[in-house]
Computed example of a mutant assay.
Amino acid sequence: MSSQLQSVMESLIAVFHKYSSKEGDEHKLSNAEMKSLLQNELREFLAVSQDPMFVEKLMNDLDENRDGEVDFKEFVVLVATLTVACNEFFVGKTKR
């Protein structure tokens, strides 16, 4: 039986590949795949931004190697950043 952390890691990998395999390179997220992932998996985070160019700006920020796509390593940076932000938010709430 997998530990809770192993299960989360497996889920993260599965979610990435669920979207990355829809078009082009199956190991990278295109702009359209990234937008679909955000809309379906991180709807609340996407809704916070009123900027219609949010996904494009996010892709540009994440695309460390500038190939126009987001690979798994770049995707994990997004998830880790959002996770840290959520933790800081909740820690701040409990300190008040």
Rank of each mutant, 00 (worst) to 15 (best):
S49C: 12
S49P: 11
S49G: 09
Q50G: 15
Q50V: 05
Q50A: 13
Q50N: 14
Q50Y: 01
D51L: 06
D51C: 07
D51W: 10
D51M: 08
P52T: 04
P52F: 05
P52W: 04
P52L: 02
P52S: 03
P52M: 03
M53T: 13
M53L: 14
M53Y: 12
F54L: 02
F54T: 03
F54D: 01
F54P: 01
F54H: 13
F54Y: 15
V55S: 03
V55A: 04
V55Q: 01
V55M: 05
V55Y: 00
V55G: 04
E56C: 06
E56W: 05
E56G: 12
E56Y: 09
E56T: 15
K57T: 06
K57I: 02
L58E: 01
L58R: 01
L58Q: 01
L58Y: 00
L58H: 00
L58V: 03
L58S: 01
L58W: 00
M59H: 05
M59E: 10
M59G: 07
M59I: 12
M59F: 03
M59W: 01
N60C: 09
N60Y: 07
D61S: 15
D61R: 14
D61P: 00
D61N: 14
D61M: 12
D61A: 15
L62A: 11
L62G: 11
L62H: 11
L62D: 08
L62V: 09
L62Y: 07
L62I: 07
D63F: 01
D63R: 00
D63I: 00
D63M: 02
D63E: 01
D63W: 01
E64S: 14
E64Y: 12
E64D: 13
E64R: 14
E64C: 12
N65D: 15
R66L: 02
R66N: 12
R66K: 15
R66I: 01
D67L: 03
D67N: 14
D67I: 04
D67T: 07
D67S: 06
G68W: 08
G68D: 07
G68P: 08
G68S: 10
G68V: 07
G68M: 08
E69F: 13
E69W: 06
E69M: 14
E69P: 02
E69H: 13
E69V: 13
E69G: 02
E69L: 13
V70G: 02
V70C: 05
V70Y: 04
V70F: 00
V70M: 06
V70K: 03
V70S: 04
D71Y: 04
D71F: 04
D71G: 05
F72E: 11
F72D: 09
F72K: 09
F72S: 10
F72A: 10
F72H: 11
K73D: 13
K73R: 14
K73Y: 13
K73F: 10
E74I: 11
E74N: 12
E74Y: 10
E74V: 09
V76L: 15
V76H: 03
V76W: 05
V76N: 05
V76I: 15
V77A: 08
V77M: 09
V77H: 11
V77K: 11
L78G: 09
L78W: 06
L78Q: 07
L78M: 14
L78Y: 13
L78P: 08
